[in-house]
Write a protein that binds this DNA or RNA. Sequence first.
DNA 1: CGTGCAATTGATCCATTTCAAGGGCCGTGG
DNA 2: CCACGGCCCTTGAAATGGATCAATTGCACG
Lengths: 255, 255
Amino acid sequence: MTNEDVLATRLSNFTKLSDEECQALRMLARDRVRRVGARVDLVREGERPRSVFLILSGWAYRYKTMEDGRRQIVSFLLPGDLCDLNNFVLAEMDHTISALTALHFVELPHERVAQICEEFPRIARALWWHMLSAISTQRQWTVSLSRSAHERIGHLFCELFLRLQTVGLTRGNMCDLPPTQTELAEATGLTPVHVNRTLQEMRAEGLIVLKDRILEIPDLARLQHAVLFTPNYLHLGQAEAGTSVEKDVAPAVEI
Amino acid sequence: MTNEDVLATRLSNFTKLSDEECQALRMLARDRVRRVGARVDLVREGERPRSVFLILSGWAYRYKTMEDGRRQIVSFLLPGDLCDLNNFVLAEMDHTISALTALHFVELPHERVAQICEEFPRIARALWWHMLSAISTQRQWTVSLSRSAHERIGHLFCELFLRLQTVGLTRGNMCDLPPTQTELAEATGLTPVHVNRTLQEMRAEGLIVLKDRILEIPDLARLQHAVLFTPNYLHLGQAEAGTSVEKDVAPAVEI
DNA sequence: CGTGCAATTGATCCATTTCAAGGGCCGTGG
DNA sequence: CCACGGCCCTTGAAATGGATCAATTGCACG
C-alpha cells in the first residue's frame, strides 16, 4: 500500500507543518511513483545518482561489500525516508542501496526539492532535521562497535520500532520486521548462527516476540533498559524546544 | 601552529578554488580564534550549539557515553574539519565533542557560513562535499562492525593518514598519531590490551611503525591491501569527474 | 515431489575479553 | 635530588562470547 502522506507524517515529527505544506509534500509523493521487487538495486556503488529517493512503502537498505565478499548493511531505509538528500554535488556512490522488500518510491530531481524548500522554508528546516537524524543514527550504529550481541540486536529493534512508529507503521507494540536473520547478522556484524541464538535468548527473557517477520515488544521500556537504548539521537520533537540553552563550556582562551 | 589555510587546502581536494575564494576562506579562519588544552569539551551532549567549529590545528573527537560508563569514540576531527555544518536547526547534541590534543579552532556563526556560501557558490558546493565525505566516513566506521581487530585498526590508520595528507600534515610516509592506545580502543570498540597486542603484531609484520605518537606506514599500498581499505569513501578529487555516468539499474515498473 | 532458502541445533575452535601485575616515563613535591 | 603517584604501555594466564563447520528441520513454491 502506497501512502502519499508518509513524508508529511515523518517531517511532522520535527516541526508542525501547515495544511498547505503537507499538501505540497503530498504532491511530491505523486511525482513519478516507481515500484521494484525485493532484492533489486536502486543505486549501485560507483554511480552518480541524479536524484533523491523518497520511500513510500517497503524497506530498503544501504550496504557495502568488501573485497572478500563480506557484506555490511550500514542502514535501513523506511517509509518516509529520503536518500541522499545531501548529494547535491552528485558524488560517486561508495555503497549500494537495495530493496529489502517490494518497494514503492519516488525519484525526485534535486531541483524539485530545492524548489519546495524555497517556497516553504519550514519544509527546508524539516529536511535539515531529517538529514541530521540520519547522521545521528549512523553514529549510533558505530557505537555498536562496543556493544554485545544482545545490545546490538536489541538496540536495532528499538530503533526500528520507534522509527516505524513515527510514520504510523506500528500496531500497538508490534511492527513488521522483514529482514531475515542473515540480514540482521549483516547489519549487526554478527554471524547468522549467533543472531539466531541471541534471538532465542531474548525471546526466553521475554524481551521480544518475533515470528513470521512480525516483531512484538511486550515492554519497550524494559527492552530499552536491557540494551541501554536512549532515543535522543532520533531527534524527535526537539524542534519546538527553543534554542536558548546556556551552559559554561570550553573555558577557551581568546587569542 | 595555527594554519589559516587549512580549510582552503581541505576544500581544494573537492573542487578547484579561485584565489579570491581561498582568500575568503582564509578570512574565516581569522574570525575568533580560540585555543583549548587537551581533554577539554567543546560541546557537550544536551547542548544546542549555535555555531560551526572549524579546526585549525590539533585533533578532536566525538564520543558517546553509555549509562554503564563505556565510551565510544565515533569520529576524529582533524585540522580543516568543520563540525556540525548540518546543524542549522540547532538540534540538541546527542554526543560530546572534546579536544584530543591542544587545539586551535574558530567558532563560526551559521550566518557567517551562509553568507560566504551565497557569495561563493563554489564554496557552497565544496562544503556539501565536505559534509558528504563526513557522512561516508561515518558509514565506513560502521563497516568495522564486521572487521577483525587488525582490520579495524589498520583501516583507521589508513583513513587518518590519508585525511591528514589532504591538509598537508604528513611527512613522507609518517604522520602524528596523538591518540593513546586506550583511545584507539575506544574508537575501534576493542580492549586497550587487545589494541596493544594487535599493534605489536602489525609492527612485527612490518605494516606499521608506531612510537612516541608518530605513525609510519612503510608501504601504504600493502597496509591498505592487508586491511581491505579502499579510499573511495573519502570522495577525494571526484568533483571534476563530470556527472554523466549512465548505467542500467533498477528495472523499475512505472505506475 | 523435489528444490531452495530460512531457521535451528550441536560440537568445536579461536579471537577477544578479563583480571592481575610489572615497567617506563614524567611532573610534582618534600 | 630523590621519592612518589599517575598515566601509558606491556605481559601473562584464564575465561568467554562469538565464529566456524556441519547437519537437520520446516516451509513455500514451481
